[in-house]
């Protein structure tokens, strides 16, 4: 299951874990990504709060947590090569969290809703 937020983050749910990244639409809007500011393993994310930032040459955007949860892994490959986000935003998630409250997923958009959201 993949869910999206209005600030263009996605969460890919696998069991009790969620992989959070930015949508393909967001990576296109940003252009060449040059840096991803990531939290540390063990940090607690809170839904709606920023947990890092993603920077391109001429823009920067906060990363807003779509769901709450503890960071169990960060995508270290992005430290070496942040442009992986441009290459495939869905495959190159940013953090893996242990979802604290699955009910939070209900307020997010599904793929069809998100497609409609960005079309506007």
């Amino acid at each position: 299951m993949i869910k999206y937020s209005k600030t263009h983050e996605y969460v890919k749910v696998e069991g009790e874990y969620g992989y959070i990244g930015v949508s393909d639409y967001a990576q296109k809007e940003l252009g060449n990504v040059v840096y991803v500011d990531m939290p540390e393993v063990g940090d607690e994310l809170e839904a709606g709060e920023d947990f890092g930032a993603i920077e391109s040459v001429k823009a920067a955007s906060d990363l807003i947590a779509p769901v709450s949860g503890e960071v169990v892994e960060i995508n270290e490959a992005l430290e070496e090569n942040p442009r992986l986000v441009n290459a495939d935003a869905m495959a190159n998630w940013i953090v893996k969290v242990k979802i604290a409250d699955p009910a939070e997923l209900d307020s997010l958009m599904d793929e069809a809703q998100y497609a409609e959201y960005i079309r506007k």
Binding site: V34, Y35, E55, S56, V57, K58, A59, A60, D62
Partner: peptide
């Protein structure tokens, strides 16, 4: 590294 700066980040 201009993405850090005020003209892009504004109040952040």
């Amino acid at each position: 590294l201009q993405a850090r700066e005020q003209h892009i980040r504004r109040e952040k």
